[in-house]
């Protein structure tokens, strides 16, 4: 009985530990919370979705959960034609210059920016 009690306490503590997970979503996404589980899906016509997770405790990541500290940032592309080039955290002010460098033929006109430069 004490063993089960310990497991139960552990499970409850896990709930408290995982209470400080912050999830940020960039891009056009639909968010659903079902039974405590967050489901992220792209909106119709969304080119890409960026996400960032940071948390302490039991934190879910793209590859699995981590007990401790996790900071993760990722990008999923759903429509490559809308996002021919994906920029992740480019330096502010450089987005336009990068757009010029990449030029039209390299996909500079279909640029998706994730991070500081903003989402497009």
């Amino acid at each position: 009985m004490p063993y089960r009690f310990g497991l139960l306490v552990g499970a409850i503590l896990l709930q408290f530990c995982s209470g400080c997970t912050i999830v940020r979503i960039e891009g056009d996404a639909r968010l659903q919370l079902r039974g405590g589980v967050l489901k992220v899906a792209p909106a119709d016509g969304a080119g890409a979705i960026g996400y960032s997770v940071s948390g302490l405790g039991l934190v879910p990541g793209s590859g699995g959960p981590t007990l401790g500290y996790l900071r993760e940032r990722g990008v999923f592309v759903y429509d490559p034609q809308a996002c021919r080039v994906v920029l992740i955290e480019p330096h502010a002010g450089n987005v336009e210059a990068l757009r010029a460098v990449l030029a039209k033929n390299a996909g500079g006109d279909r640029l998706c920016v994730m991070g500081k430069g903003g989402s497009q």
Binding site: L14, Q15, C17, S18, G19, T21, V23, G35, G36, V37, L38, K39, V40, A41, P42, A48, I49, Y51, V53, G55, G57, L58, V59, P60, G61, S62, G63, G64, P65, T66, L67, G68, Y69, L70, R71, E72, R73, G74, V75, F76, V77, Y78, P80, V86, I88, M114
Partner: peptide, 24 residues
Amino acid sequence: LSGCSTIDHGAMVYVSTVKVGVGL
């Protein structure tokens, strides 16, 4: 129940992760 989340996976093109602790 502890905040598991799912993302409708498209093609992952980028990931940057820092883990400290125990990961599975």
